[in-house]
């Protein structure tokens, strides 16, 4: 059953154009000029019940704007969004009962209240039945190790504690759809692992649908079977994570710093130069065809190398390559 349905979803913002100086400010006051900025541009997708989908893109790609339309905060400029068959904005309250949202760095809990009091208040707002609430509280306390945090006010919590508290508060009314915006940012590995386990568990036992926006490839690899990539408001990829991993996981990059500039080098097959600067050379190679040592050895035979470093392609560069059509071309 499709839980989230998005068709030709578009959001255009009118942004006041700022002009420089006092005259500019006065002009803007009396004759404001606006610029149109398309944050989300005719996006289509469907998410089924129980799916965990990574919704990724660089900053400003349109991720939050999409989430805001799906949670009913923003009205689409055009197109169509349905969550559990409802228009999220027109039926905002009914939609709110079924969803849970974690907004990255912001807390939805009361800064000065002891955590358990905040939770009680949230449970009342969502009208969670008393017995159910008690049961969930016990479960969450165990899974997220919350027991010792119950009497701590949010303001005294560390980042990791805050995020665990936040997740508990977001899921205490057992929403059917959960939007998580950067749930593991800035956290250490152990807390990250615990949070991922918790999300996985909720998804498996309750078939909670999860939309996850993150910059952390680890989150995506561990939680999502499917990713949707958005760039400059356009959907550029929607498909299994496996395809991306096969295409890009096999590449590595080596950057060489050389004594002399050298533009022409011969490389083993499967390797190619991707970036040339004076005294700096970047080589990308396919791990299934050659190895780092072969590439390095071949190069060192031809030129004097001062230093070199090996890197895995990061999400931003993958997105860039996908944007340039790399995935489609190679997949075809």
């Amino acid at each position: 059953m499709s839980v989230i349905e998005v068709r030709e979803l578009t959001k255009v913002f009118k942004i006041p154009k700022k002009e420089i100086g006092l005259t500019g400010a006065i002009k803007a006051l009396f004759m404001p000029k606006y610029e149109q900025k398309t944050a989300v541009d005719r996006v289509n997708f469907q998410i089924d019940e129980g799916e965990v989908v990574g919704y990724i893109g660089v900053n400003g790609a349109g991720k939050s704007t999409t989430i805001k339309m799906l949670t009913g905060i923003l009205v689409p400029t055009s197109g169509h969004a349905r969550v559990l068959g409802r228009d999220p904005h027109k039926e905002r309250v009914a939609n709110a009962r079924e969803i849970g949202v974690v907004f990255g760095q912001r807390t939805q809990l009361w800064w000065d209240l002891a955590f358990i009091e905040s939770l009680n208040l949230v449970a009342r707002i969502y009208q969670v039945p008393e017995t159910r609430y008690k049961k969930l509280l016990d479960q969450f306390a165990e899974m997220l190790e919350l027991k010792e945090l119950f009497h701590v006010p949010i303001r005294n919590m560390s980042l990791g504690q805050k995020m665990r508290a936040e997740l508990a508060a977001t899921l205490i009314h057992e929403p059917r759809v959960v939007y998580l915006d950067e749930p593991t940012i800035g956290l250490d590995l152990i807390v990250k692992e615990r949070i991922r386990e918790f999300i996985k568990e909720q998804n498996q036992t309750k078939s909670t649908t999860v939309v996850l926006t993150t910059h952390d490839l680890g989150d995506i690899e561990e939680l999502c079977k499917r990713v949707i990539i958005i760039d400059a408001g356009r959907l550029i990829y929607d498909g299994p994570i496996e395809t991306i991993k096969q295409q890009f996981g096999k590449y590595r990059e080596i950057t060489f710093e050389t004594i002399h500039s050298s533009e022409r080098v011969t490389l083993p097959s499967g390797a190619e130069t991707t970036h040339v600067e004076p005294r700096r050379l970047t080589v990308r190679f396919d791990r299934t065809l050659t190895t780092a040592s072969q590439v390095a050895a071949a190069l060192m035979n031809q030129i004097e190398v001062k230093d070199f470093s090996l890197s895995e392609p990061d999400l931003a560069s993958i997105i860039k390559q996908i944007y340039n059509g790399a995935l489609n071309r190679e997949a075809a």
């Binding site: 805001k68 949670t71 009913g72 905060i73 905002r92 309250v93 009914a94 709110a96 009962r97 969803i99 949202v101 907004f103 912001r106 939805q108 707002i125 969502y126």
Partner: peptide, 13 residues
């Protein structure tokens, strides 16, 4: 300004 107003809009009240 802080964006906390959005919190009110995702709650069923």
């Amino acid at each position: 300004r802080s964006g906390d107003f959005d919190r009110f809009l995702v709650r069923p009240i």
